[in-house]
């Protein structure tokens, strides 16, 4: 199986930069399995990353790849997708990149329902800079910038995406990597803005500060706390308090942005054949 996926990798870029026990490789593997399952054309697929450990994955992948500035991956991706809607555009981002510095772009890309697939590597921490808390770090967790424990409530990014207008929202974990593969494939196939949140482990910057000393402890934590959406629907909020709900959380059909813009083009071009006069008529804001 690994052999089959090698064609998607820039093997000369290895070894990768991730720590031993990091879950990012598992998420990446799920992404590539999904791509392989869908038989995406590498030449017609663009992978856009922001800044952070997970975003570095773009460099390891043999597609059209773009490693952007911190938080802005979705804005770059929006430009690519709108300019060339025929390209498949996948955004890989982390919890800090996507929901903190990039939070505004995230909600607006979701609101537009532009056909992008966001694969959010949620390791609950800023790993690359050494363990600062992010908007997805749960409360009362330890981070280098929360030496007494975090006091800020965290986002539920799936709820956030849905509220902002995303039309496909799913979550899985690195423990449930087969499910993750399936959800990524669904997200890519979905027409519109899709978010797949992958709960992943950062043993170096998060686990060892938060009573999960080994990478295995973190996978066990994922296994023990994940609840599938079908089961979660039968549970009370109290029972779900500390749980991670996984599966396809939300999906609906809605007009997609670049298709709507194509309609704008048709409408505008229709006007041209009519009787549009010189545009020099654009005067001041007042009328005569």
């Amino acid at each position: 199986m690994m052999q089959d996926l090698e064609k998607y990798l820039r093997v000369n870029m290895f070894p990768h930069m991730w720590c031993p026990g990091c879950g990012n490789g598992i998420v990446l593997s799920s992404l590539l399995r999904a791509v392989d399952k869908l038989k995406l054309d590498q030449n017609q697929t663009v992978i856009v990353g922001g800044i952070g450990c997970s975003s570095r994955a773009a460099g390891y992948l043999d597609f059209n790849t773009l490693h952007t500035t911190h938080g802005r991956a979705l804005a770059f991706a929006t430009g690519i997708k709108l300019a060339r809607p025929e390209l498949k555009v996948i955004v890989i981002t982390g919890d800090g990149d996507c929901t903190s510095i990039g939070g505004n772009h995230f909600i607006h890309a979701a609101r537009r329902n532009i056909d992008l697939t966001v694969l959010l590597f949620n390791n609950s921490i800023y790993g690359m800079t050494g363990g600062q808390y992010s908007p997805l770090t749960p409360v009362k967790k330890m981070a280098t910038t929360a030496p007494y424990g975090t006091i800020e409530p965290n986002f539920d990014v799936a709820d956030l995406a849905r509220a902002a207008g995303a039309t496909f929202v799913a979550r899985s974990t690195t423990y449930h990597s087969n499910m993750l593969t399936g959800l990524i494939a669904e997200g890519i196939q979905h027409k519109g803005f899709s978010l797949v949140e992958a709960i992943t482990a950062c043993p170096t910057a998060y686990g060892r500060r938060n009573k999960m000393k080994s990478p295995a402890d973190m996978l066990i934590w994922q296994k023990d706390n994940a609840v599938h959406i079908n089961k979660a629907e039968q549970m009370s909020p109290g029972e779900l308090a500390e749980k991670i709900v996984i599966g396809r959380l939300y999906c609906k059909e809605a007009p997609e942005y670049t298709e709507l813009y194509d309609e704008v083009i048709k409408q505008a071009m229709g006007q041209v054949s009519g009787s549009v006069t010189s545009i020099t008529g654009k005067g001041g804001k007042t009328s005569g």
Partner: peptide
């Protein structure tokens, strides 16, 4: 960011 993306797309 969007115009950089669009330019990369040609």
């Amino acid at each position: 960011a969007a115009i950089i993306g669009a330019s990369l797309a040609g």
